[in-house]
Design a protein around this nucleic acid. Structure first.
Length: 659
DNA sequence: TGGTTATTGG
């Protein structure tokens, strides 16, 4: 078959390119050259497209050079293909030069450059270019709106979208996708609904891209029911068209969107259910879905399921990429197994900023502040630029480890060296840092100096510090502030009334309680849960609903008795904490974490570590109780509360009683 | 030439 002509080759080559087999297409091209068959312009534009798809800059440059010397003649279309290749391969200098040298530039050339400047964050230049565009087509508008959004300029993007409409440009399918994205990144479900209306008016509701963008928009705006209705509507159609590759791809995307939507909205149960249906219906489980589901395991704190998902990733044959590895690191850390997080982290070749941040935050979560800081320093030495999330991790680490000076240094470094403006979360970390270190006045000053006094979260943090350092009067002052700021949160009421009670000011205590009742404020129920085999057992304070209730309580009583023999006594400091509500004296010793702990002890063999999750902070009494139990029974107990991990071993806790 | 799903923190 030596006499294949250029047309035969081109059919072969473009066929491979069309189905995305770029390497095969380029192989074809090489064989064609070996056989000394001269390519035509169409062949060349296909080849260039494949090069940019594979980020094959070197080969692309070679082809460019060959075109120039071969005398085949450059036309605008071919030059645009080269321009696009340079932009996709991030060879912006080449792209700029080529654009300057081009004799004929059409709309496409301009659009590519507008997109190029947006890609490298030179927004002003791209806007300038856009305004100078001789003729603005739909693609130009789409490019600028999309690029502005990706540069975080949602407001400007929206303005341009409105300008596009008012100047009489008609949306195409791509515009709809971009507009839905814009609505979700603005969390503007009303805008989303309006665009949904337009989709129906235009009759493009069956386009797969548009449908998926629509579902995704509702997911990201928190409207899961609406998303689910749309999803159900189309899933039947997917079943009928399973034989088409395009349909399969679209279906995979829509499942991923639903799963990530449930996870994003904290509806883990639904996320797991959707994932199971996806497997049952034999839909290809993509990395996207797995990343989300691993993150669900992380947040729900279900280590065993997380492990199963990790095994599943391997079984399906997915390579653990940057997204998967960072969510796995995060999952193991949040589920209490920092060792496993380290294993994944160490397997990573060149960790990116997210992977570093996951590991740093993981150390912080487990109270290993020094380790977190060491990692952070090492990361910077490696030339990886930290982002705002990394700093949240580092500041939290400093705060939990009582590293005041280091924390202050990093807070300065953030803005001075990296130009990251502190956000609310960073300020909150600082208040926590000062407070935990016992600098309550400095914390207060920090709040006022940075105009944070309207934010209840920073006062809540200060309140915890008052408790930690037993500063009764400041605590009372802060509680009153909180009571004004969030009159419908139960915490401050309970704290205040407890504090009055401790001072034996019964009338005032009762007044606060009745005010709380009048306003209809309800306390968040404290919950603890423990996973044994495949079951998650959940407990609330004084819970009597568990089938083994008698056994649990009788063991608990026995345990309390034995602990008292070695010096344990109920801690009275808990009046200064926002913990579970107690109603009677009997309940005092029956906080949910104690019940979960006892259930763990009686259900597992001696020596097995016990892992407990809790939706509030551990109270001082329970903390002491668990410490003593770990000593008495020689059991390791790992508790994840709402803020961090506590590793109890030999009568001590990893938090050093500083939490 | 442009468009859909994922990770750290909220």
């Amino acid at each position: 078959m030596l006499d294949r002509d250029v047309r035969t080759w081109t059919v072969l080559l473009s066929g491979s390119a069309r189905v995305g087999s770029f390497s095969e297409a380029l192989d074809c091209f090489r064989r064609m050259q070996n056989e000394c068959v001269l390519p035509n312009k169409f062949t060349l534009s296909c080849v260039l497209k494949c090069c940019s798809g594979l980020y094959e800059l070197r080969m692309g440059k070679g082809v460019h050079g060959w075109i120039v010397t071969s005398g085949i003649g450059l036309d605008v279309a071919l030059e645009n293909s080269i321009l696009d290749l340079y932009v996709k391969c991030e060879a912006f200098d080449y792209a700029k030069k080529l654009f300057e040298l081009m004799e004929d530039r059409d709309n496409v050339s301009w659009n590519i450059m507008v997109g190029a400047y947006l890609q490298i964050g030179e927004v002003e230049r791209s806007l300038d270019l856009f305004e100078r565009l001789p003729e603005k087509g739909v693609v130009s508008w789409n490019t600028i709106v999309d690029g502005l959004m990706k540069n975080g300029l949602q407001g400007t993007a929206l303005e341009l979208l409105y300008r596009m409409i008012s100047s009489g440009h008609v949306f195409n399918k791509v515009t709809f996708c971009i507009a839905f994205n814009l609505a979700s990144s603005l969390s503007n479900v009303e805008l989303g609904r309006q665009i949904h209306g337009l989709v129906l008016t235009f009759g493009v509701q069956d386009d797969r891209f548009i449908r998926n963008s629509l579902i995704d928009m509702y997911c990201k705006c928190g409207e899961m029911e609406k998303a689910h209705v749309l999803f159900r509507k189309i899933s039947g159609e997917f079943l009928r068209t399973r034989n088409s590759k395009i349909s399969c791809e679209a279906e995979i995307v829509s499942w991923s969107s639903m799963i990530s939507g449930y996870v994003r909205n904290g509806e883990y149960e639904d996320a797991f259910k959707t994932f199971s249906s996806m497997v049952r219906e034999q839909v290809w489980v993509s990395k996207f879905s797995l990343t989300s589901i691993v993150s669900a395991c992380a947040n729900a704190g279900i280590l065993e399921l997380g492990r199963q998902m990790h095994a599943y990733i391997t079984k399906v044959g997915h390579k653990v990429d940057a997204h998967l590895s960072s969510s796995l690191i995060d999952m193991y850390a949040k589920c209490g197994s920092l060792d496993d997080a380290w294993i994944i982290f160490k397997q990573t070749d060149n960790p990116n900023v997210v992977q570093w941040t996951s590991m740093i935050s993981g150390c912080a979560l487990h109270g290993q502040g020094r380790e977190a800081v060491r990692l952070f320093e090492y990361m910077m030495k490696k030339g990886v630029t930290p982002n705002e999330v990394t700093f949240i991790g580092v500041l939290t680490a400093c705060s939990h480890a009582g590293m005041l000076e280091e924390g202050c240094d990093y807070f300065r470094l953030m803005e001075e060296a990296y130009g990251i403006m502190p956000r609310f979360e960073h300020f909150a970390c600082m208040v926590d840092l000062y407070g935990r270190a016992g600098r309550l006045n400095e914390a207060k000053e920090f709040i006022y100096n940075n105009r944070l006094s309207h934010l209840s979260a920073v006062w809540r943090s200060l309140l915890s510090s008052c408790r930690l350092h037993k500063d009764f009067s400041t605590a009372k002052w802060v509680s009153e502030k909180l009571l004004q700021l969030e009159p419908f949160e139960s915490g401050p009421y309970i704290l205040l009334s407890n504090m009055f009670a401790a001072e034996r000011k019964w009338e005032e205590a009762a007044k606060i309680r009745s005010l709380m009742q009048q306003r209809g404020v309800r306390k968040h129920p404290g919950q603890s849960w423990i996973q044994l085999k495949d079951l998650v057992h959940t407990f609330v304070a004084g819970d009597r609903s568990h089938p083994q209730v008698t056994e649990i309580y009788s063991y608990l009583d026995k345990l309390i008795g034995r602990l008292k023999e070695i010096g344990y006594s109920s801690d009275v400091e808990m009046v200064m904490q926002d913990v579970e509500e107690e109603q009677g004296e009997v309940l005092l010793g029956h906080h949910s974490e104690k019940l979960a702990l006892v259930y763990g002890i009686i259900s597992t063999p001696c020596g097995t570590p016990i892992r407990i999750m809790k939706n509030l902070r551990v109270c001082t009494d329970c903390h002491t109780f668990i410490k003593r139990t770990s000593q008495l029974l020689g059991r390791e107990v790992i508790v994840r509360d709402i803020r961090r991990f506590h590793h109890f071993k030999h009568g001590r806790c990893s938090c050093g009683d500083y939490w």
